[in-house]
Amino acid sequence: MYKVFVNDKPLFLTNEIVKETDFQMFLLESIDIEQLIVKMFSGKISKAYLYYPDEKEILKKLKEKIPVQKAGGGLVYNKHGEVLFIFRNGKWDLPKGGIEKGEEIENTALREVEEETGVSKLTLGRKLQKTYHIFKRNGRYKLKITHWFEMHTTFAGQLHPQEDEGIEKVAWLKPDEIQQALTNSYENIKLLFEPEKQYE
């Protein structure tokens, strides 16, 4: 099952028929995806399931219906075990950005972290999960697939928010501050802190 966020509301891609209770279920083959997205953006639908029988093909089917933008981002730790966060549009987020032509996704993630925060001396760690969300740009909906990587740095210099990208501040957050920041963040960012429950 995949979890795609539409305006922070979950859209599940599933190959199982689930009994509807607090959500609506649609057939991926026949759904007008734009209509569904519009309803989720406007709040008419707060949770939906898209059904397709073949789980291996399900994401491919969605990609046929909506353009995809690939992005890379970093969950960056410094030597004190603090995590690098950015603050943009009134919410805490992690540094990430779109892939450039001919670029490897690992390089996208490293470049974007450095551009958005001013942090250098980054080393790439393990690949984390991908996150999926739908956004609107120039009147068109797109599916953003972000590839996340754990990163480490010994950088101890000044942090520089990339203001032309709307980033108001950059901060190293201690483990106990992270939970507080996540209460004012995005659902797909929270997912990156869930699997190992490292801050409980």
Rank of each mutant, 00 (worst) to 15 (best):
E116A: 02
E116P: 02
E116K: 10
T117E: 11
T117L: 11
T117F: 12
T117D: 08
G118A: 09
G118L: 12
V119D: 02
V119S: 05
V119E: 06
S120V: 08
S120K: 11
S120Y: 06
L122Y: 01
L122D: 02
L122T: 01
L122F: 01
T123E: 08
T123V: 12
T123Q: 09
T123H: 04
L124P: 00
L124V: 02
L124G: 01
G125M: 05
G125K: 05
R126L: 09
R126Q: 11
K127I: 08
K127Q: 14
K127G: 02
K127P: 03
L128E: 02
Q129T: 12
Q129K: 13
K130D: 15
T131K: 01
T131E: 04
T131I: 05
T131V: 04
T131M: 05
T131Y: 03
Y132F: 15
H133D: 06
H133A: 00
H133G: 00
I134C: 00
I134K: 00
F135C: 02
F135K: 11
F135N: 03
F135W: 06
K136M: 14
R137N: 12
R137S: 13
N138H: 10
N138D: 14
G139Y: 05
G139Q: 05
G139F: 03
G139V: 04
G139H: 04
R140A: 10
Y141S: 01
Y141H: 07
K142H: 10
K142T: 07
L143C: 05
L143T: 03
L143W: 02
K144D: 07
K144N: 12
I145V: 13
T146H: 04
H147S: 15
H147T: 15
W148F: 04
F149D: 07
F149M: 05
E150C: 05
E150K: 13
E150H: 10
M151K: 08
M151R: 08
M151V: 12
M151C: 10
H152S: 06
T153R: 09
T153C: 09
T154L: 10
F155G: 06
F155M: 13
A156D: 15
A156Y: 11
G157L: 02
G157R: 03
G157A: 03
G157S: 04
Q158A: 05
L159G: 08
L159T: 09
L159S: 11
L159Q: 07
H160N: 14
H160S: 13
H160A: 12
P161D: 08
Q162S: 08
Q162G: 00
Q162C: 09
E163R: 15
E163D: 01
E163N: 07
E163C: 00
E163T: 13
D164Q: 15
D164F: 15
E165N: 04
G166Q: 07
G166I: 06
G166H: 06
G166N: 06
G166M: 09
I167H: 10
I167N: 06
I167Q: 10
I167V: 15
E168V: 10
E168A: 04
